[in-house]
Simulated assay, not measured.
Amino acid sequence: MRKMIKQCVFVTAAGLLGLNPALALDVSRYPVLVELVEIMSQEDGYPREELEAVLSSSKIDQQIIELMDRPYESLPWHRYRDLFIKESRIVRGVQFWQENQTILAAVEKEFGVPQAILVALIGVETHYGTRLGNRRVLDSLVTLSADYPRRSKFFTNELRTFLNTARRENIAANSVLGSYAGAIGIPQFMPSSYEAYSVDFNGNGRRDLVNEMEDAIGSVGNYLKVHGWTRGEAIFAPVTEDLPDAARDLVSKRSKLRHRTRDLADAGVVFDTRGGSDSAALFFLQQKSGKDHVVGYRNFYALTRYNTSINYAMAVTELSMQIARRMGG
């Protein structure tokens, strides 16, 4: 991660050294930040004055709150699909695959995740590594910790991880750029995921998800494998006939594997059970007119550990199928 400070997604923080006090964030106004300073200074050994200075160099950005409250994933499937299943993204996916074939093949061999899935996921996240985000991660995480009560606990933990990592790696925390939610790099890992699941796939002694495609692709493979991806299993199966009344109560709005696959079939749900996992979820995709029901297997659930949205996992899956078809797979 040390190398990142020298590259395109990191900007110099020199201008912040002379920060106008009138522009500094008043940490004392935000109980969550006050508590975080106490915890990190006592438990993590982070010098109090240094930590307060870093937090003071951030800002609360209300636009981030607005973006969190209207995520793309809340759109109905037919509208969400149109954002990602585009000819331009399919064509660029084929190019990305061709440019990174050796890496993709090595990651598939190591972790069992198909190359098409690796390509499509990065395509959805950052348009194949070309759009990494232009917001300061510190601002995003401070805003969501201090001023977004609904998920404050989650983002405060992410902020703590981010600050400790930046200090350990001697990186200016207020120089790192990423998404409005605080995600970093080509695969858009949150700080805790960066710490837990990123890998040094090219073996150069560092885990760099911003500048090194080998590490980025390898880390996606590792993340999915750790979260249950199983080599060779199917991802989903469309339901091919109307649901019987007895099966309607089995439908969920989430991808959690609530049912045994054979129980769904016994309840009259008609789908292809070949190649799927023993457990499954039954959910629907909202089309312009009506709903398409789908059975999601263990590998579909693994994709929703990356992003909990069913729409997201389906977009990655469908994009992967389209790209693989163009590649002749």
Results as ranks from 00 to 15, higher is better:
residue 186 I to C: 02
residue 160 R to N: 05
residue 174 N to W: 12
residue 187 P to V: 05
residue 128 Y to G: 01
residue 149 P to Y: 15
residue 164 N to G: 14
residue 106 A to E: 08
residue 107 V to M: 11
residue 197 Y to I: 05
residue 213 M to K: 08
residue 105 A to H: 15
residue 85 I to M: 03
residue 162 F to R: 07
residue 214 E to F: 00
residue 137 V to W: 01
residue 220 V to G: 00
residue 194 Y to N: 10
residue 200 D to Y: 03
residue 86 K to C: 09
residue 125 E to A: 05
residue 132 L to Y: 09
residue 193 S to W: 09
residue 167 R to L: 04
residue 109 K to A: 12
residue 190 M to A: 01
residue 151 R to D: 06
residue 214 E to Y: 05
residue 149 P to S: 13
residue 202 N to K: 01
residue 83 L to G: 02
residue 109 K to R: 15
residue 216 A to G: 14
residue 191 P to S: 15
residue 164 N to V: 10
residue 97 W to G: 11
residue 128 Y to H: 15
residue 218 G to S: 09
residue 114 P to T: 07
residue 219 S to C: 07
residue 207 R to S: 00
residue 205 G to W: 01
residue 149 P to A: 03
residue 166 A to E: 01
residue 100 N to K: 10
residue 147 D to T: 14
residue 150 R to P: 04
residue 197 Y to R: 06
residue 129 G to L: 10
residue 134 N to C: 09
residue 171 I to Q: 12
residue 192 S to T: 01
residue 207 R to N: 02
residue 173 A to M: 09
residue 217 I to V: 14
residue 145 S to D: 02
residue 141 L to H: 11
residue 157 N to D: 08
residue 104 L to F: 00
residue 179 S to K: 02
residue 94 V to Y: 09
residue 150 R to I: 07
residue 138 L to Y: 11
residue 86 K to L: 11
residue 180 Y to N: 12
residue 140 S to D: 14
residue 192 S to Q: 05
residue 178 G to P: 12
residue 168 R to L: 13
residue 212 E to Q: 07
residue 183 A to F: 15
residue 181 A to F: 15
residue 220 V to M: 05
residue 111 F to E: 10
residue 124 V to M: 07
residue 177 L to R: 12
residue 97 W to K: 12
residue 206 R to G: 02
residue 120 A to F: 04
residue 123 G to L: 06
residue 105 A to N: 14
residue 201 F to W: 04
residue 211 N to T: 06
residue 159 L to H: 02
residue 168 R to G: 01
residue 210 V to E: 14
residue 182 G to F: 03
residue 161 T to P: 14
residue 118 L to A: 08
residue 110 E to A: 14
